[in-house]
Structure formats: structure tokens, C-alpha cells
Design a protein around this nucleic acid. Structure first.
Length: 448
RNA sequence: GACCCUAUCGUCCAGAGGCCUAGGACACUCCCCUUUCACGGGAGUAACACGGGUUCGAAUCCCGUUAGGGUCACCA
């Protein structure tokens, strides 16, 4: 006997952007499916033809793919329960609507819309996250204090309404577990009434907490971090973002935070999802990103950083690329910072930071120190960080001055700035010739 | 307005009656490491919304209050 396979779905509407809340819903569905060896279905809810565009759908694909949330069935990959665009499922909806008509459960109202007669019976269901939910449907009122109006399932113009197509598709696609945002918890009663009217056993429901802004307000399109595209464009590592999102509402119940995808899949469970709305904190997301960047192998880091270098028009010789990237790897929070940080390796014509010049190069004797250092380094062998450090300190000792007298001007002379990589490692990567040229340029340019 | 969900540090989570003088992480402050900036290490500030019960004992269970969120569309 086959264990009944778990089938979950993510059913976004193509609005032109993928909201974090949506991505997190997709993630929890995906985790649930992968954890249990079930199927993850992608269905595009594009009944609203107005805002339905190919680009809007592409944004959803891009976001999910970036996060690594692969789907087993969907518009682009097909599957046995298609089509997966609601706009192409008219015949299916008509069939189910006919069934309701035959059963006398719907009627056409005075405006020509098709409405479902709500049974308004007391109703109980077990939510996988929220537990037992008990509603007395006969008490549901609308804003005017009147009885909740019967649910419209088809507009006068023939367009289908969300609640209906959502339920029909979940039935038709044999969805076993509906994992969605808590904003649908209150709608679930109506949905169950629809399942019952259709003579179908409802799936299990799991309503996950909403994601709010850090101050608790509702997150809208404009808010920082709201759009998944902003992570793609902001230099985030998908695994880091996924890790952070997973911890918004779910916890492995111990102190583990940085977890590889496989571990999250392995440990994920709806029972460990909490019910409290999560406030989104980009600072913590950034911390995860920095951690992932620091801990990943240089080879992987290079693959992620290279496109950013290219986009900035920076060219680094192949044989130096890794060495240069390694110099700043521990300091980068977002990949987009990389070009700026390593730009001075790519050109001899780098700019000098005015503040650094003022503070360091303009100091009396600074240019002389550079000359002395260059002279000292002329014969250094091997030209590596350890030797360079030893030589510099030796020079300082000989002259009876602090090493800082050399270190600071040298840093500004070779990089144009007062902050950057470890000086000696930076010198090693730059090499003797470039250092001498840069010191020369500095001395000429800033000679009193 | 009716109904539903929620309530532990500023934020994300631990805590499923005694292990809690409430733990971890981010953020913040200080110290160490480092003659840069980071990383790393150490320390610190900081919370059980309130009021009633139940119990020998409550952050944990129950009720109420308050607060926040959600749903009640010919939007999805």
C-alpha cells in the first residue's frame, strides 16, 4: 500500500513582485514537501487579467529559483494536474460550478453574479499550526451588523472569484496540505463549507504567522526587504536569506541558527511553527549573509563575487583574483560592496580619499617615510607578508620611530584610503613594482 | 461592529507547573586581539502586557482586561 503522498502548493498572484511573506510561505511549503518526500506544486493565480503579465510571472520564477525552491509541477514544468495557470482553467471551474448548481447550492443574484449559499453552521477544524479552531458561523456578521453575505464565486462578467478557484484547484490538483498565511485563517471556514458542498474531504490546513515590519506595521511593497528582488539586487546569498526566513516563525527548538539547507529540510516540522506574527529585522538578515560569506569556500565566494566585479567594470588578472578577494572576504556583508572594496587593485589611477590624505600624507615627514620604506623594501626577499612586516618593524626600530609612522602613509599611498585589508598582505598581493610606482606617484602628487 | 489568531529582552527564537536569581542569537555599550577596518574572544544593558483564579508551587493551566494582527469584496 502506498502511503498517501503529501502534496502542497504555492499559489501566488502575479502582482509584479514577490513579497517576503509569499516567499516564506513558499519556503514552508517547500520544506514540508521535501521533509516528507512529497510534491511541491506551483500554481499561478492569475484570474485578475488586468495585472497579469509575463514579466510578473517571471518575477515569481526568478525569486523562487534564486532561493532554490524547486517545484515538481507548475506552469513551466507541466505535470499531470495542469494547466497551472488559473487563466487557463475555465473549463474546470465551470464543471465544479455546474456541480454546485445541480446541487442547488448556488444562485444568481440580482446583479448577475453567481453566489454560494453559506451554510452558516458551527464548524470545527484542526489547524496544523494553530490547533483546534472552533467557529460559530451563524454569528458571522459583516461590517453593517447584518449577516455575512453569501460568497460570490463568479462575477457578473464571468470572471471567477479567488475563494472558489482556490478551493477547486486544490481539489483538482489533489492538494493534501494547505500551508498559507494566517490572513486566510478566517477564510478557512468558508473554504471548508465549499469543500463540503462539493462533497470533498477538505485538506489539512496550516496557517503560518504573518511577517510584519520591525515596528509591527503591515509590510507593504515599499518597505525595506519586502521584495525578493531586493535581495537578488542587494548582494545577498540565497542560502543565507533562506536560513533567515526559515527562522521567522519556525525554530528547531534548540540554539541552532546557522543551518545548511539540508539540515533545515531535515528538521523542519509544522508542529514547531509558532503562531505569533514575526517582525522582520533586516539587520539580522544581514548578519546571516555576512556569516555565510565568511564561511563559504573561496571558490564559491569567487563565483558569487565575479558578476559584481563585472557589473562594476572591474578587471582583475586571473592569477590575482583569488588573492584579492580573500583579502576582504571576512569584511563583506553584501556582495555589492566587493567592487568598491577592491577597486584600487584594478587600476593604478585610483583616487585618494581627501580625509586620509589630510590626516596621514600631510603629516610632516610622511613622504620621507615612504621613500625610506621603498628603499628598505627594494632588496626584500621573499616579498611576502611576514617578511614585509618584519622589515618594516626593523626599519622603524633602526630609526627609533614607531612602526605606525610607516604603516599609515604606506596604506594610503598604495590604496588611497585609510581603511582596508591587512597592510602586509595587501602589499604582498600588490607586488614590489606596483608598490614602488604607487609610492612614487604619491610622493610626486603630494610633494609640498 | 461581528468573528478568529496572538501576547517572554528593541527584534528573532528557547521555555510545554518546580531544572528560571528566565537561556541563545541580532542590534547596542565596554574590554581583549589587531598600530587600519573587520573577523574572533570576553563582559554588560535589556523581557514573562495587566488583573483575577487553579495549585504546596505558574512565564508555563483557566477566566477577564488591554494591546497587536487578521477576516468579514463581483481583490488575490
Amino acid at each position: 500500500m502506498n502511503p498517501s503522498p503529501v502534496r502542497v502548493r504555492f499559489a501566488p498572484s502575479p502582482t509584479g513582485y514577490l513579497h517576503v511573506g509569499g516567499a516564506r510561505t513558499a519556503l514552508f511549503n517547500w520544506l514540508y514537501a521535501r521533509h516528507l518526500g512529497g510534491q511541491f506544486v506551483l500554481r499561478i493565480e492569475d484570474t485578475d487579467k488586468e495585472r497579469n503579465t509575463a514579466e510578473a510571472v517571471q518575477v515569481i520564477y526568478d525569486g523562487l529559483k534564486w532561493l532554490g525552491l524547486n517545484w515538481d509541477e507548475g506552469p513551466d514544468v507541466g505535470g499531470p494536474h495542469g494547466p497551472y495557470f488559473q487563466s487557463e482553467r475555465d473549463a474546470v471551474y465551470q464543471r465544479y460550478a455546474d456541480q454546485l448548481t445541480a446541487a442547488g447550492r448556488v444562485y444568481t443574484d440580482e446583479n448577475g453574479a453567481l453566489r454560494f449559499r453559506l451554510p452558516r453552521q458551527p464548524l470545527i477544524f484542526d489547524d496544523l499550526v494553530c490547533g483546534r479552531i472552533e467557529v460559530d458561523r451563524s454569528k458571522s456578521q459583516n461590517r453593517d451588523g447584518g449577516l455575512e453575505s453569501d460568497m460570490t464565486i463568479r462575477r457578473a462578467d464571468g470572471g471567477w472569484i479567488f475563494h472558489f478557484v482556490n478551493v477547486v484547484d486544490d481539489i483538482d490538483m489533489q492538494i493534501t496540505h494547505v500551508i498559507r498565511g494566517e490572513d486566510h485563517l478566517s477564510n478557512t471556514a468558508k473554504h471548508i463549507e465549499l469543500y463540503q458542498a462539493l462533497g470533498v474531504e477538505p485538506p489539512r490546513f496550516g496557517h503560518i504567522p504573518l511577517i510584519l515590519n520591525k515596528d509591527g506595521s503591515k509590510m507593504s511593497k515599499r518597505d525595506v526587504g519586502a521584495s525578493i528582488t531586493s535581495y537578488l539586487e542587494g548582494g545577498y546569498v540565497p542560502e543565507a536569506v533562506l536560513n533567515y526566513f526559515a527562522l521567522l516563525g519556525w525554530s528547531p527548538k534548540d540554539d541552532r541558527e546557522i543551518m545548511p539547507r539540508e539540515e533545515i529540510v531535515e528538521r523542519f516540522d509544522l508542529a514547531n511553527v509558532n503562531r505569533k506574527g514575526a517582525h522582520f529585522d533586516l539587520a539580522k538578515c544581514d548578519w546571516f549573509n555576512a556569516q555565510y560569506l565568511q564561511q563559504m569556500p573561496l571558490e564559491h565566494y569567487r563565483k558569487l563575487a565575479t558578476p559584481w566585479l563585472a557589473k562594476a567594470g572591474l578587471v582583475l588578472p586571473d592569477d590575482q583574483l583569488d588573492a584579492v578577494l580573500a583579502l576582504e572576504k571576512m569584511k563583506v556583508t553584501h556582495l555589492r560592496e566587493v567592487p568598491e572594496r577592491v577597486a584600487f587593485f584594478a587600476t593604478e589611477d585610483f583616487p585618494y580619499d581627501p580625509a586620509a590624505v589630510e590626516k596621514t600624507l600631510r603629516k610632516p615627514g610622511a613622504l620621507d617615510r615612504l621613500a625610506q620604506l621603498a628603499e628598505c623594501y627594494a632588496a626584500v626577499e621573499p616579498f611576502d607578508a611576514a617578511t614585509l612586516e618584519a622589515k618594516l618593524k626593523e626599519l622603524a626600530a633602526t630609526l627609533g620611530v614607531k612602526p605606525a609612522e610607516f604603516i599609515h602613509p604606506a596604506r594610503v599611498a598604495v590604496s588611497g584610503r585609510s581603511v582596508g585589508p591587512s597592510l602586509y598582505h595587501m602589499l604582498e598581493v600588490l607586488g614590489k613594482d606596483r608598490i614602488f610606482a604607487r609610492i612614487e606617484r604619491t610622493r610626486t602628487q603630494f610633494a609640498a
